[in-house]
């Protein structure tokens, strides 16, 4: 190894001094609707530091030693939970995981009681996933403990939104003028909603593409009322994907067919599956992202999912770095 590593510094960072944390003002992480561009940039900068730790043989730093982080998942999830727990462990925190779907709820314990129990156990941070929109807000309102929303109903999934944008930035650099197409079950997607909030300060265009029955009735008015002027709706995928830089199909739950929101899987695949032919309409360097877990052969075909444009695995790796950054920012200090 040559010693002339010198040119990587300060070139990489210019003469930038460490960014200030003064803009950071979140006790909880509930959604991206209250994140400024500066705060998102801060998360990304810290995540860059975490990526280096993830590349080490010994992936462990003592930053959150003595802190206890609980994951409380009221909904089955493997990847998000594993991602948060690894993030916590890599930072040296102790983790406890409550499989809430099985334990207290079955006994008829209310959410607020379960949460108060965790608080009484002196847990520092609770990471909560819940099938009901807004459940983490109930926790944040009534508890002193810090809360991270790991997905609530159809409402928000802030860490996913951040890791998605982080992945886009790492791959594409500046996102100005880029075009992101989110395809599928927008109605029920917390990932889509958090991406809408998260991208609003990036000068990026977002096109939501879905059958009319899978777009919430009030979506257009929401985007108008809340300054999400970068968002538009297009029902035809071939039109939507034209010139796209980022293509993000969403998981289509099989229940959507049972409830009649789509007439058949065959029709959905014909109209909305992201495959090579459709992708050829996107920009030549377009990237593919998916929040997982995928339904291969439904919203995305195998070749696209595992093709060279796919960043789906990078999303998973970046997810750990983003969650480490969030835990560092949240679990570290007593911000009050």
């Amino acid at each position: 190894m040559s010693m002339h590593e010198t040119k990587s510094w300060p070139a990489g960072q210019g003469t930038m001094l460490p960014a200030s944390m003064e803009s950071w003002n979140h006790k909880h992480i509930l959604d991206l609707d209250d994140f400024s561009r500066e705060e998102i940039d801060l998360v990304f900068e810290i995540a860059d530091g975490m990526v280096e730790i993830l590349a080490r043989d010994v992936k462990k730093v003592p930053t959150l030693r003595g802190k206890t982080i609980a994951t409380m998942f009221f909904e089955p999830s493997t990847r998000t939970r594993a991602s948060f727990e690894l993030a916590a462990k890599y930072l040296g925190a102790d983790t406890v995981s409550l499989d809430a779907a099985k334990s207290s709820v079955a006994k008829g314990e209310s959410l607020i009681d379960s949460l108060r129990t965790l608080q009484a156990l002196q847990v520092d941070t609770i990471i909560i996933r819940h099938p009901c929109s807004g459940a983490p807000y109930l926790a944040a309102k009534h508890l002193e403990t810090k809360i991270i929303n790991a997905g609530d109903g159809c409402h928000a999934h802030p860490s996913q939104g951040l890791l998605d944008i982080y992945t886009m930035r790492k791959q594409l650099g500046d996102l100005s003028g880029r075009k992101l197409v989110i395809i599928g079950d927008i109605m029920h997607s917390r990932v889509a909603r958090s991406n809408l909030w998260g991208t609003r300060n990036f000068d990026i265009k977002v096109i939501l593409c879905a059958p009319p029955a899978l777009i919430p009735y009030g979506l257009k008015q929401w985007t108008e009322n809340c300054g999400l002027h970068h968002v538009s709706i297009e029902h035809d995928l071939d039109t939507a994907i034209e010139g796209a830089d980022i293509v993000m199909p969403l998981r289509l739950q099989k229940e959507r067919q049972q409830s009649g929101l789509i007439s058949s899987m065959r029709e959905y695949i014909r109209l909305y599956q992201v495959n090579d032919a459709r992708l050829s309409r996107a920009k030549p360097g377009a990237i593919i992202m998916h929040p997982g877990p995928m339904n291969e052969g439904i919203e995305i075909n195998h070749d696209v999912a595992y093709g060279k444009r796919s960043l789906i695995e990078q999303q998973v790796t970046n997810g750990v770095a983003i969650r480490m950054a969030l835990l560092y920012l949240i679990a570290g200090g007593k911000i009050r």
Partner: peptide, 26 residues
């Protein structure tokens, strides 16, 4: 060889009220 070390994650004052350090890359 020359390397650079960011010690933010190893500080003993992360939990204190006044921490104001952005993690940088090692």
């Amino acid at each position: 060889p020359v390397g650079s070390l960011d010690i933010t994650l190893y500080r003993d004052d992360v939990s204190s009220l006044s921490f104001k350090h952005v993690v940088q890359q090692t």
